[in-house]
Amino acid sequence: MSSVTGIGLLTGCSAPGTQTNTENVAPVDIRGALYLPTRDFNFYQMWENYSPKIIERDLGYAAQLNLNAIRTWVNYEFWLENPRAHRKAINHFLTTAADKNIDVLFSLFENVGTTPSHENLIDSDPQTATPVRSPSLTVVQNKKQWTKPREFVRWFMDRYRNDDRLLAIEVMNEPGWRSDVKRFAKAMFQTLLQNRGTVPLTVGATSLINSVDYLDWGSDILQFHYNYPSSKKIFEDLLQDYRKISEQVERPIWLTEWQKVASFGWSSSSQAVEDWYPDYSSLAPLLQRYNVGNFFWSLMLKPAYTIPMRRKSVLNGLFYEDGAVWSLEDARSIKGMSGDRSFSGVERKQWPQWINAIKHPQS
């Protein structure tokens, strides 16, 4: 573990401020990150705890990497409680992002997590806090309860369907692996289409195969996710498939979740893993080589989003709250997709003290 401990400055292969894109690769068009504030564990908390200062600080970090896109979620459950506060916060988020030349991909619903009970929505204990489904399966599985979610979709579209600060509107994240959720997502997508404006519409998809299914829905942008390939070769094979499909489909295709080469995949084991730390530089050069529009998970350094990954002590993200980064090489590799690898700052490869409640390999 000595390679991921201590505090220092990475000397690397280039001095801070030096242009090192010697291959003359064109900048990747969509260079983004997923965003959830550091100490929030689901997107209800992001809006319930909304802090303009934190948003302005964090999107400033994104601008340091020359990112031009952010993918994040609005929240149906918070909207049910306080639509006025939600709109005010959304407006501030979009304005802050636009001031930093960053477009926003907002997703409306989430298919990852536990039931959105009040207890789960507000839980901020790093050992137990969880992402939450939005809406609940009780709502998803009963068409008679779709009136309110449709109202939420129309509310959002009435206000933002022509907003040029938006990169796209995503109906739901990863609905494809449950048929009941997919039926709900398709119905909500139809409501998007009925109320569409100039902003493109899309669906969060786990794979290229699932994404192609959404062409029939009318999706303007195809998505796919690949967080933890077990080797660079496997990841590159996927990007070659991406290139072939891109030549056949007259739609943009974006990789909207990626992280690193990893040994653990999505196994159910709760044993801490050796490669628990971020390593975006393991994949970023391939994304630049294949010119793939992409969003890495995540901008802020956090315990893993899902409980099974958190039990493995997986940490993901780049920026600490004070602006230090986990890895200067990661920061330079991500910024390099803009054609400029220059990035200087403090590198700190230490488990964040505020989450010491979680057992981790450095303890």
Rank of each mutant, 00 (worst) to 15 (best):
S230W: 03
G218Q: 13
I221D: 15
Q240G: 04
Y228H: 12
G218C: 13
W266K: 09
S263D: 15
S268Y: 07
I234R: 15
P252F: 04
K244N: 12
K232W: 04
E274V: 03
S246C: 12
L215Y: 04
E257D: 05
E236S: 11
Q240S: 07
A262I: 01
L222W: 02
F264N: 09
D220C: 12
Y242T: 05
Q240I: 08
I209S: 06
Q223A: 10
Q248H: 14
Y214C: 06
F264V: 07
I209L: 02
I253P: 06
P252G: 05
N210V: 04
N210I: 03
D220K: 05
A262E: 04
V249R: 04
S207G: 10
Q240R: 11
D213P: 05
Q240M: 08
I234Y: 11
L215Q: 09
E257S: 08
N227Q: 13
Y214P: 00
S270W: 08
S219M: 02
E247W: 12
Y277G: 02
T256R: 09
L208N: 02
Y226I: 06
S230G: 13
L215I: 10
S263P: 10
Y242G: 00
E257H: 01
S269D: 07
V273M: 00
S207D: 04
Q248E: 13
I245H: 07
I221H: 14
Q240P: 03
H225G: 00
D237I: 03
N227Y: 15
S267A: 12
Y214D: 06
W217L: 15
V273G: 03
E250W: 07
Q259Y: 03
Y228R: 05
E236R: 13
V249F: 08
L208I: 04
L238F: 01
D220L: 08
K260Y: 02
S268T: 09
D213F: 01
V273K: 02
S230C: 00
V212R: 02
Y214E: 01
Q240F: 03
W276M: 10
F264S: 00
T256E: 09
P252K: 09
Y226V: 03
Q248M: 14
R251K: 15
L255I: 11
L255Q: 09
D213N: 10
I245K: 01
I253F: 00
Y242M: 04
S267K: 02
S246W: 03
L255G: 09
D216P: 06
L222E: 01
S270G: 01
R243K: 15
Q223R: 14
K260P: 07
Y226P: 11
N227A: 15
K260I: 03
S269G: 01
Q223K: 13
R251F: 10
L222K: 02
S269L: 01
D241H: 03
S269Y: 08
W258F: 08
Q240N: 10
V212P: 02
I221N: 15
I245A: 06
I245F: 10
Y277P: 03
Y228M: 09
S230M: 10
I234F: 11
A272S: 14
E247R: 15
Y242W: 12
D241K: 03
V261M: 12
Y277R: 02
S211D: 14
A272P: 14
R251C: 13
Y214K: 08
S263W: 10
V261C: 12
P229A: 07
W217F: 14
Q271L: 02
P252N: 08
D279F: 00
S246H: 09
P229W: 05
S270T: 00
S230H: 12
W266M: 07
Y242C: 04
F264P: 08
S230E: 11
W254R: 14
